[in-house]
Design a protein around this nucleic acid. Sequence first.
DNA 1: GCAAAAGTGTTGGAAATACACCCATGT
DNA 2: ACATGGGTGTATTTCCAACACTTTTGC
Lengths: 246, 246
Amino acid sequence: MITITNGKQLRQGKTLQTIQSEVAETNRLALSVDCVIFGFDENKLKVLLIRSDLKKYEGRYSLLGDLVYPAEDLDAAAYRILKQRTGLNDLYLEQVQTFGAVDRHPAGRVVTVAYCSLVNVQHHKLKILENELHWHDVKSAVDFAFDHKEILDACYERLQKRIQEHPLGFNLLPKKFSLRELQNLYEAILDVKMDRRNFRKKFFSMDFLTDTNEMEQDVPHRPGKLYKFNYEKYEKKKKKWFGIDF
Amino acid sequence: MITITNGKQLRQGKTLQTIQSEVAETNRLALSVDCVIFGFDENKLKVLLIRSDLKKYEGRYSLLGDLVYPAEDLDAAAYRILKQRTGLNDLYLEQVQTFGAVDRHPAGRVVTVAYCSLVNVQHHKLKILENELHWHDVKSAVDFAFDHKEILDACYERLQKRIQEHPLGFNLLPKKFSLRELQNLYEAILDVKMDRRNFRKKFFSMDFLTDTNEMEQDVPHRPGKLYKFNYEKYEKKKKKWFGIDF
DNA sequence: GCAAAAGTGTTGGAAATACACCCATGT
DNA sequence: ACATGGGTGTATTTCCAACACTTTTGC
């Protein structure tokens, strides 16, 4: 519902023209999208960052962002930006939160919508390396431009929550992975240690892992089995209901 | 990060002026906030709706919304709109999701940020009733203007999820409430039936309810005890960790 | 006394946790 | 042989679900 409320102005039965002029009057702001792209490598959770374009923030790190075009759907903008900055598409992409503090951008009023995405670092070698695009440890990343630290934190928290309730983790791993890799992923993202045997029992009892009958190669110890995640089985079984718990 | 990416344009070391003009060029859109205000009355989940201002949508229902002012923080806009439309402040207000389809608003490009809020219907009698503001059953509400049904659904789903993990429900009830009222609330919001004894056990074992030593009045049956929610205890004990479960 | 909801305990099964040993491979 | 991590089983506990009867009040 769109209304400019000045005192006692009538609210009923506006024409489209009235509202159009209100929109025109009020649109002194720009909208952008920032993508927080997580990856997993060397047992660490990583995030893709570039160096800020902006002199004011020279040398500081920035998320992958861009303005949304006036005739572009919000989600489409997020996918476009991901593609432009990294050359990647075909990724899970989720809207997380919108940041709209008046002074968050020095160039004027820019409200930004944060999106979050997960990439398999091994399978998606970056082809576009402008602005020093590369992977950074999430835990140790500092020196952000704008409010991008805050945005990253919000996306990281969302990721931690989502990965406990949805099988997102598999997007960060090779198609075939060992249980050790899977556990390392969970331990890294959630920042906890888990019991190896119970972790296995958990995942096997979920019954979403398919044994590929292949083994790890070139590991300096006994090789583990490789598994695939079975999305079809998951789709059929997925849960609707968790109990009340807080 | 703000960049208009036209082919091979240099991305390094932009001046603030460059970006300012990019922002000015691109801001042919407006931003609005829509508030989804849930209440609970007569054992039903309710939502506050008005009749749409817009001729095109005459007679159809609309959420409480307004444009965001250029010099207004996003959250502040949400609180302002809630206040203006209902006379209420002092409410829990949570950003839910941003809706940015190009054609979602007939007056032009209007991206809207949905906020969600919970009101105790009994304690907050509405003083502003412009545009036929009143409570509607969430389940049976139809005939929405814009994409407001979609927005409502998103907020309702978020509410269902949040109420299972956070003690939000108490914002919808009187300060002192019976366990029956609490259970009715959960059953209405989550659309399930629960076992009364297990429900009680659950809440008592959480140990966040304080017995007020008062009883229900004027009920046509045996009166139940009234409880308060103990926020202090909750703040101390709240959980950090749920297991992996999907 | 009767209708309506309050209040209360137990039991069985499922899932989570804690925990220790042998195995396969590379060096 | 040894170091490294793979692979497995069991006992304990905790949590959840299912379930029925007695009590208090208003009418």
